[in-house]
Design a protein around this nucleic acid. Sequence first.
DNA 1: ATCATGACATGTT
DNA 2: TAACATGCCATGA
Length: 123
Amino acid sequence: MPFTARVLTAVRRIPPGRAATYGDIAALAGRPRAARAVGNIARDSRAPGTPWHRVVAAGGRLGGFGGNPAMKRALLAAEGIRMAGGRIRDWCRVRWPGRPADRKARNRAARKSVSPGKRPPGK
DNA sequence: ATCATGACATGTT
DNA sequence: TAACATGCCATGA
């Protein structure tokens, strides 16, 4: 199953009244860091029955939507998800799947070497 | 503390 | 290659 199909399946798994982040969808699809790929697929693919409006950005932000973010907001509101200043209310409850917690364990080991003299833009 | 910006990370097309 | 409906972190206001 190609990654795109997996993403579509994951999105369809989102129950009504709930929403998932691009990162979560990517993780369900098997590529935890492919959030951007998910967005890319979403745009290129308009598979029917795929509730892309339930897919939002991290932190409960709307994220982007093809040409009409207001429509996305309306669709979410129709499912009982309301927003507050661009953020989903009770995001911790509507989020799906239920994520236990994460804390700042992300070390990323990387930022890699960040090439000398590049990262600290600092002032 | 919150918002905005900059920069890099990651994956597919 | 660069673009993208992102994510996370750091810094500045």
